Amino acid sequence: MKLKIGCHPYDVARPLFDGTVRIAGADAEFSGAALVSDIFEQMMRARAFDVAELGMSFYLRTLDLDDPPFIAIPVFPNRQFRHSSIFVNTGSGITGPADLAGKVVGEFAMYGHDAGVVAKGILSDEYGVRPEESSWVIGGFDWPMAPFEFVPQIHPDGVAVTRAPEGKALGPMLEAGEIDAMISADVPRCVLDGSPRVARLFPDYGPIERKHYRRTGIFPMMHTVVVRRELAAREPALVEAVYRAFGAARDAAMDQYRQRRAFNHMETNVPWFGELFERDLELFPDGLWPYGIAANRPSIDAFLRWHFEQGLSKRRLAPEDVFLPELLNT
């Protein structure tokens, strides 16, 4: 059976793109895009793929539609810790999380994008800072961009949400002091360029994120993989084969990382990358990218809870509401 699959060619997916790993019973055509959000848009607007990578919040919003078009499999090709995704203007008076209350915060692309859901969840859980205590401005991170109109734009009651002024982007607004802080999946140019007018809320974010993971077991997922529901209903065994193939590709990538330790990861050519990899293995001895329900239940439950608490889901979802039933025991 022919399958059209949209996904970014991450290390964990590249063996699928180059044919090293194949999907049993399928003739699969893999497509990427210049921006991963382009894959989301093609899937949301035109159902351009049978199987596609989709942001977690993008997908969860579809579950509140009258006829939800997709069902997810527990594959998470993109996941990031997000203390590092909160940026502040150094003249705003923000020196700690509590100072975000009463401030104007920019958010990339839409209110409640995947990184935003996670960052707000952490701020609420760990520091008692609720989203409704701030005002929110939605826009592009380094260039002007309209919010993603191909996904339901949800602005919960009690939360002030506006669009960035026409022709303006959040990164320059942050540097100029037109907004006080910013949450973004991508790092704005002013931060990368070392502008003294901007900083991360958590400058030493690595140890903080590691400590948070050790205590909570939460490794936030940004994206999952979804399947068109009619395909899942008609070919459940094929969808299970898709899940297994994504897992095999992930395992192949992990094997490559492990084997390259013998050669000091010389193809990466980043100083101390090997030491970083060894420290990561201490946290993730079974592999850096867990798939399936059991290994990810704390992370899944946290995202679903945050999505509901932030007014982005109509009801508190459980994994059983989100993932293909045949894969709930993975």
Rank of each mutant, 00 (worst) to 15 (best):
I179Y: 04
F277I: 04
Q259P: 00
R210F: 02
A253S: 08
L317D: 04
R297Y: 02
P97L: 11
M173Y: 04
R229N: 07
A72H: 05
L54S: 07
D186V: 09
N89L: 11
A245N: 05
M182Y: 06
M266V: 14
V270S: 12
V227L: 06
G19K: 07
R297M: 08
L324S: 10
E267S: 14
Q80E: 13
F70V: 00
F108N: 08
P203K: 04
L288G: 09
R279T: 06
K103A: 13
Y213I: 03
Y291V: 02
A294Q: 10
W143C: 00
R79P: 01
I122F: 13
G32A: 14
G128K: 12
R214P: 03
M173H: 06
E282D: 13
G32V: 00
E209M: 09
F30S: 13
F148P: 00
R22K: 15
E178P: 03
V129C: 13
Y127S: 09
F58V: 06
L231H: 04
A115Y: 03
Q256V: 07
K168Y: 11
D280R: 14
M266C: 11
L100F: 04
L170V: 06
D50H: 14
F108R: 09
E240Y: 02
T90M: 14
K4S: 14
A34V: 12
P69T: 00
E326Q: 15
A262K: 09
D301H: 04
L238Y: 01
G6A: 01
H307E: 06
A252R: 09
P97A: 15
M110T: 13
A253M: 02
L63H: 01
V75Y: 01
A245G: 08
P97I: 04
L324W: 11
A119S: 15
F58I: 01
L238E: 01
V75S: 01
S84H: 10
G6F: 04
D193Y: 02
L35M: 10
R234G: 01
E178Q: 12
Q259K: 11
R215T: 05
Q80M: 11
W136Q: 12
